[in-house]
Design a protein around this nucleic acid. Structure first.
Length: 304
DNA sequence: TCCCAGGCAAGGC
DNA sequence: GCCTTGCATGGG
C-alpha cells in the first residue's frame, strides 16, 4: 500500500512508484497544469474549509491541478511524500483514478525481467508513471481530438471546449456533459479550433446510437464497437481501450512509438498495425504499461 | 515556406 | 484486401 487515506486528503509515501510530473505529462491525460503555491493554497483552502489545518505551503515543491469530468484534485509534492487534496466526497474516486491499489514495483519488476535495454532505460527515467483510471466518455472525446494533432494543441482545444459548454465551477470549468456537447452546432465545434475533427465529433454526437457511456468494459468485441464510431481507427480505439477502459493488452502505436520501434527493435517495419501486433506479442498483458514508459521516454527523455 | 503533430476516411485498384 | 491522398490548424 503506497497511500494513506485521510478524510480530506490522500498521502503518498512512496515516491519511487508515483511521480506527478510523469503521471500527468506522459500523454494519457490533458487537463492538468502547474499552479503557483499561493494560488494553490487559495484553491485548496476552499475545497473543504480546511482553514484550521496547517497547509505547509512553504515546504511544498510543486503543485499540479488535475481536472476530470466535474472533479478537481491538487497534487502537492514534498521532499519525502505527496499529498493529494480533493473534495472529501471524492477521496475514493481519486484513489481509483490514480490507480493507487496497483503495485507498480511489481509491474516494473516484471517488465525489467524481459531484459529489453531500451525499456529498462525508459523505466529508469519514467519510474513514476501510472496508468490512470479515466472516464471512458472523456477519454473518447479527448482522443477523437488527438488524431494527427499535437499534445499542446489537443490541450488547448479541450480547454476551449470546456469553457464553451462545461459547467462553471468557480475555479474551473467541468468537462462538458454529453447533452451539452450534443447541443453544439458544427460551427460551434469548429470555433474551438478542431479543424476537420469537428466533423468527427459532430457526426458521433448527432448519431442517436452514440452510446459510449453505455459500452460494457467487459464485452469481448469492445474494440470493434469502438471502430464503428466515425473518426475512430486503430490507434485512437486502442488509446480509448487503454486509457478509458484500462485494457492493458493494447499498445497504441503512433508516430513516436514507430520512431522508437524503428530505432530500437526493427528499422525496416513501417506498418503501424504490424508494429503494434509485434509489441503486444512481446509485452502481452503488460503492453499498456510498457507503451507509456516507452512513449513518454521517446517524447521527453530521448535527447538527454 | 515547408514540415510536423498520440490518424482517419474515402477512393482507386 | 492494400496503397495513396486530402484534410484544418498552429508551432518550429
Amino acid at each position: 500500500m503506497i497511500y494513506e487515506r485521510l478524510y480530506n486528503k490522500i498521502i503518498i509515501h512512496n515516491k519511487t512508484d508515483f511521480n506527478s510530473k510523469h503521471i500527468l505529462e506522459c500523454g494519457q491525460v490533458f487537463r492538468y497544469k502547474i499552479l503557483s503555491i499561493e494560488n494553490a493554497f487559495c484553491k485548496i483552502s476552499k475545497l473543504n474549509n480546511i482553514t484550521n489545518e496547517k497547509f505547509t505551503e512553504n515546504l511544498c515543491e510543486l503543485i499540479y491541478e488535475v481536472i476530470t469530468l466535474d472533479k478537481i484534485a491538487y497534487i502537492c509534492e514534498y521532499n519525502e511524500f505527496y499529498i493529494i487534496y480533493c473534495n472529501n466526497n471524492f477521496i475514493d474516486y481519486f484513489i481509483n483514478y490514480f490507480d493507487l491499489n496497483s503495485d507498480y514495483s511489481l509491474i516494473k519488476q516484471k517488465l525489467s525481467e524481459l531484459n529489453i535495454e531500451i525499456l529498462n532505460k525508459a523505466i529508469n527515467c519514467c519510474y513514476g508513471v501510472r496508468i490512470l483510471n479515466q472516464n471512458p466518455y472523456e477519454v473518447f472525446i479527448n482522443f477523437l481530438i488527438s488524431s494527427n494533432n499535437n499534445i499542446k494543441r489537443i490541450q488547448l482545444i479541450i480547454e476551449k471546449l470546456c469553457v464553451l459548454c462545461g459547467e462553471n465551477k468557480g475555479d474551473y470549468y467541468a468537462f462538458p456533459t454529453l447533452d451539452k456537447l450534443k447541443s453544439l452546432s458544427l460551427n460551434d465545434l469548429r470555433s474551438v479550433g478542431l479543424g476537420y475533427r469537428a466533423e468527427y465529433l459532430y457526426k458521433n454526437l448527432q448519431n442517436s446510437a452514440f452510446n459510449i457511456t453505455e459500452l460494457n468494459a467487459n464485452s469481448d468485441n469492445l474494440k470493434e464497437r469502438l471502430l464503428n464510431f466515425y473518426g475512430v481507427g486503430d490507434k485512437v480505439s486502442e488509446c480509448i481501450l487503454l486509457f478509458g477502459f484500462h485494457k492493458l493488452n493494447y499498445f497504441p502505436t503512433d508516430v513516436w512509438v514507430q520512431k522508437l520501434y524503428n530505432e530500437y527493435f526493427d528499422n525496416s517495419l513501417t506498418d503501424r498495425k504490424l508494429i503494434a501486433k509485434n509489441l503486444v506479442n512481446t509485452f502481452k498483458n503488460l503492453s499498456g504499461y510498457a507503451q507509456q514508459y516507452l512513449f513518454y521516454y521517446k517524447r521527453c527523455f530521448d535527447k538527454c
